[in-house]
Nucleic acid binder design. Structure first.
Lengths: 126, 126
DNA sequence: GTCCCTGCAAATCCTTTGCACTCCT
DNA sequence: AGGAGTGCAAAGGATTTGCAGGGAC
């Protein structure tokens, strides 16, 4: 199961389900959810929601930034060193104990920008 | 409608619904959702999900940090200046165009920590 | 009358759960 | 036999949607 989560970007349970089906055709969605939750409870994968109504899963448990495309819903890692001190800097201002942080950047991804350009250019070039 | 969202912390649609009912007893949940989505589409309120399965709404549209208690689900603002340059710093590493950012800190809030202390102390003091 | 916004209820989507079954020891 | 993990289908929650009604112009 774990090896499946290892494979690519930041799939939803349903995306993973379809993907796993190619290898285990009889697997059920319930099992996928069950194992995904098991793994994230054990801390072996990260689980988060981007606002698109689905839970996403990430095999990379290192703290890192995410970029979410509002148009196509794609989620990409951002390859920048995350400020590791951010938690200790913010902690004094919080009534409670912080144990993790997540930051998301929202916008429009490269391919969505491109496809829009194409759309816009075609009527012009005709 | 807007004045309602202005009132307090980071309610879910359902919390707001119950709250609005006190003033407009006949309002329906569908209307609450409709208007909340309208307002957030117009950029007058912020909408985000914390991982508890609900959408939360925030009348404060200024970028700021959020603290989410994993135990009781409460969401609090963190009164620290958010690094405004973070988007421009990260932008070069993203294939696309960032237009907003959100960062969440997860942990256990003060009151949940306290109630746990009390629980733990009682058996000892008996 | 027309338009816009609403209440209501049904529909939808994602996720969780209960139960019976299989597989392995 | 006993336990763990699974498929399947039903249940559960949150959010969205379709439609008819009501008020303002």
């Amino acid at each position: 199961m774990n090896c499946l989560a290892h494979r690519f970007d930041h799939p939803t349970a349903d995306m993973l389900y379809h993907d796993i089906q190619k290898i285990y055709p009889k697997i059920s969605l319930g099992t996928v959810y069950r194992n995904l939750n098991l793994l994230s409870d054990m801390g072996m994968i990260q689980r988060f929601s981007t606002g698109d109504g689905n839970e996403h899963y990430d095999a990379n448990t290192q703290p890192h930034y995410h970029f979410v495309c509002r148009e196509c819903g794609a989620v990409h890692d951002i390859h920048v060193e995350m400020r590791s001190r951010i938690i200790s800097e913010v902690a004094p201002y919080v009534d409670g104990k912080i144990d993790s942080a997540a930051t998301f950047f929202y916008g429009k991804c490269g391919s969505c920008l491109n496809s829009k350009e194409i759309e816009n250019n075609q009527p012009v070039s005709e």
